[in-house]
């Protein structure tokens, strides 16, 4: 800094014309995405979203070639159409792996800043706390959506490459043309996102409250695990419709004829009951918390 005094004049305030502007939340969100893209751990989840569908298709190809057939409608249909692959992928990954991938970022996104001490850096700029939290939530949501779409696209491509682009048979044993089935896949993704995003909200809340990445990620993924266990306890059947884990299967209503919207609509309000309190807690804690670390 030996030239500091000489060169500082240019960089120092041109005194009184320095009114700062508040950035748009969209700008903060874009930078949250850039941060995600710059971190290696981001690619662990995306890598899983690519690797698991490919592994699934490879294993199924081997199984079918050795004469094994699945006990599921779509498993039986797998060799008839590659479009059955993303459906099976969603059945298998929806309960644990996709929530795990979503938790990797949602549980980490606030706590990571605590760990690095960077929260104080961004909170002493012209950005409101609510903007920072909102941008982080949007980034975690974006990541969950990207992971799900990646898994769907990869499994579709792998399935079609292995078994072709043909019509599929629904859970109701009706036939759906290949183009329509492709469209239904993405609508099914949108329906599956309802409980997945509720879990993202819980992850962001835990990340805000615990200030510890590992605790928040583990806590987030523990939610569906614990609820799976709860759902297995005899005598608690009456609460099953209100467990987030039950909502992970609501999208299957789309692959029935006629389309069964009831579980999807049910999942909407049940998941809102999980997401809304989590968001309120995250917001209140984040707005009032002391940033003492770093």
């Amino acid at each position: 800094m030996s030239t500091a005094p000489a060169s500082a004049a240019a960089a120092l305030p041109a005194a009184r014309e320095r009114r700062t502007r508040r950035p748009a939340t969209l700008t903060v969100y874009r930078w949250e995405l850039r941060k995600l893209v710059s971190q290696r751990r981001t690619y662990i989840g995306l890598g899983l979203a690519i690797f698991l569908p490919v592994l699934f298709v490879v294993v199924e190809v081997i199984r079918h070639e050795s004469g094994h057939h699945g006990d599921n409608q779509f498993a039986r249909e797998l060799t008839q159409s590659g479009l059955a692959a993303p459906v099976l992928m969603l059945i298998f990954l929806s309960g644990f792996f996709l929530p795990l991938i979503a938790a990797l970022v949602s549980g980490d996104i606030v706590a990571n800043e605590d760990g690095h001490g960077t929260l104080k850096t961004i909170l002493t700029r012209s950005t409101e706390r609510s903007q920072v939290l909102g941008a982080k939530l949007l980034a975690a949501v974006t990541y969950a959506i990207s992971s799900l779409l990646t898994a769907t696209i990869v499994s579709t491509i792998a399935g079609v490459a292995a078994w072709g682009f043909h019509r599929i048979i629904t859970f109701s044993n009706t036939v759906v043309s290949a183009p329509k089935a492709l469209g239904l896949l993405f609508v099914a993704d949108a329906c599956y996102l309802i409980p997945l995003l509720a879990l993202v909200c819980i992850g962001v809340m835990l990340s805000t409250v615990t200030r510890n990445s590992a605790a928040a990620v583990v806590g987030t993924i523990a939610v569906p695990i614990v609820l799976f266990i709860v759902s297995a306890i005899p005598g608690l059947e009456s609460i099953h419709p209100y467990l987030i884990t039950e909502q992970f299967e609501a999208w299957q209503g789309l692959l029935r004829t006629p389309t069964d919207w009831a579980p999807i609509l049910h999942s909407l309000w049940v998941c809102a009951l999980y997401a809304a309190p989590a968001l309120v807690v995250a917001y209140l804690v984040f707005l009032r918390r002391d940033v003492a670390g770093g």
Partner: peptide, 28 residues
């Protein structure tokens, strides 16, 4: 200013960190 040691995103370059902070200041 800063309190205690200034902290930055270790996985970003120095310039990217400043770009980020400038953006959080409204871009000016």
């Amino acid at each position: 200013g800063f309190v205690e040691a200034p902290t930055f995103y270790p996985y970003l370059t120095g310039r990217k960190n400043l770009e980020l902070l400038a953006a959080l200041d409204g871009g000016g």
